[in-house]
Design a protein around this nucleic acid. Structure first.
Length: 269
DNA sequence: AAATTCTCCTGAAGGC
DNA sequence: TGCCTTCAGGAGAATT
């Protein structure tokens, strides 16, 4: 389940094979992703990739005429092939450069592969995104100001991409535990001080996970990334019924906004 | 406007 | 062993 750290790890893994390299072919084997893959992606053929960026959980491959946009969805991943290999099940498309084949595999097909014109910032999928959590535009004051008069649960609030991007279900639970905030608390009822702690927790948990992802990068071309590298560090996610690391009481699990949430009743208020 | 629910999809896990 | 049911989840779309 790619969250922002996994997407950033993917970006770093594919960048050496794309940046300043020429895309020779794009092979779409199965266009049935979240939205049908448009023929327009072929606009990148013959073009040199001038930048490999990440915005939220989107990957952006820039070329002169336009930008390839990829989202990994739930189960998407890239495999870097330095030698030809028969495509397997769920290998939906390839981006072929003069250096490697980037093969996209996505069993559940929630992923996205599309084309945007310049400037990519105004593409409908990107236009209303909030600040990057690891950039200067994100801090506790931003959360505090944005949340006034909002009655939505704070967990849903921080997972809203218009508020801040890249905070997925796992890291939302983790960050709220680290900040000592109950996930069901109304967003508008969290103090400025506690939002400062929450913003710091979000930055810490995401940057730590990216760090750990980086340590698996050496295997990237062989395996396409190592899933679950952060799992051994999770404090509450997936630990329902087990002892809270802070106070020992049982970690609770509850569905909030259609998503499983994990928290400690006595440490989070 | 804001909040909630629905939707896409397949594989893993659990029940009998 | 095998079939059936349930669950998981990113995030835009639809609905309330």
């Amino acid at each position: 389940m790619p969250e922002l750290p996994e997407v950033e790890t993917t970006r770093r893994g594919i960048e050496p094979h794309l940046l300043n390299h020429r895309i020779s072919r794009i092979v779409v084997r199965d266009p049935r992703l979240r939205w049908p893959v448009p023929d327009a992606v072929q606009g990148a053929c013959g073009q040199v990739v001038s930048a490999v960026r990440r915005r939220a959980k989107y990957l952006l491959l820039e070329t002169e005429p336009g930008v390839l946009l990829v989202h990994l969805g739930m189960t998407g991943s890239f495999r870097v092939l330095l030698e030809p290999k028969e495509p397997g099940k769920h290998d939906h498309f390839d981006i072929v450069t003069d250096r490697a084949v980037l093969r996209f595999n996505d069993p559940r097909r929630f992923g996205t592969f599309t084309w945007c014109d310049h400037p990519w910032q105004s593409h409908p999928l990107l236009a209303s995104l909030g600040p990057e959590p690891l950039s200067g535009g994100f801090d506790g004051d931003h959360l505090y100001r944005t949340s006034r008069n909002r009655r939505v649960a704070v967990k849903n609030f921080i997972m809203d991409g218009r508020v801040v991007v890249g905070v997925g279900n796992i890291y939302a639970s983790e960050a709220l535990f680290m900040a000592g905030i109950h996930p069901l608390r109304k967003a508008g009822r969290v103090s400025r001080e506690r939002y400062a702690g929450l913003a710091e927790a979000i930055r810490d948990v995401l940057s730590r996970a990216i760090e750990l992802g980086g340590t698996t990068l050496r295997d990237f071309s062989g395996t396409g990334g190592t899933p679950g590298y952060f799992m051994q560090e999770l404090l509450v996610y997936g630990r329902a019924g087990q002892g809270c690391f802070q106070c020992g009481s049982s970690v609770r699990q509850k569905v909030i906004g259609q998503r499983s949430s994990f928290y400690c009743l006595s440490c989070q208020r």
